[in-house]
């Protein structure tokens, strides 16, 4: 009897956890989508991770010269909960939204093609863990 209860408890816990994780992810995506609008076109990829306060999410991207890009960065249901920074391959910081109220989006005009590293981490005011979602859009 106890084993049956235990199995069912874990089964429901798994289902509920999946439900809450998906719900949180959808809410965060909607916040990000709000700023990915014309003339910006998404690159067709979504960059996301569940991170804790002490973790940093990172990925690399190539930005073409002569193009304007928009990066949106969101966590949770409110804006300003995700800090992101862009570095070149030599680790020179090119931008961080932390000096601009953790702005949920920022535009970048690249005069020349640059390979970059993008880092994202939760703002001190954000909950201790949450989904980090980034999107990259380009404008012609």
């Amino acid at each position: 009897m106890n084993k049956t209860y235990l199995k069912l408890t874990f089964f429901f816990a798994f289902l509920l956890q999946s439900f809450f994780v998906n719900a949180q992810e959808e809410v965060t995506t909607a916040v990000c989508d709000k700023y990915m609008n014309p003339p910006f076109v998404s690159d067709g990829q979504q960059y996301r991770a569940l991170i804790n306060a002490e973790e940093v999410a990172e990925f690399r991207a190539t930005f073409y010269g002569g193009s304007i890009y928009r990066i949106t960065a969101c966590s949770g249901s409110q804006e300003g909960q995700l800090i992101f920074a862009i570095y070149d391959r030599e680790r020179n910081e090119l931008f961080s939204n932390r000096g601009y109220n953790n702005a949920p989006y920022w535009d970048f005009k690249f005069n020349s093609t640059v390979d970059c590293i993008i880092e994202a981490y939760l703002a001190p005011t954000a909950p201790p863990s949450g989904f980090a979602i980034l999107q990259i859009g380009f404008s012609k």
């Binding site: 690159d43 990829q45 002490e54 990925f59 690399r60 991207a61």
Partner: peptide
């Protein structure tokens, strides 16, 4: 450690739509 991959991807690939535009 403290560095995590965004959904198992540490890299982004330029959009073919953008290449067409270029």
């Amino acid at each position: 450690g403290g560095l995590i991959k965004l959904n198992d991807r540490l890299f982004s690939i330029p959009s073919p739509l953008q290449v067409a535009s270029l």
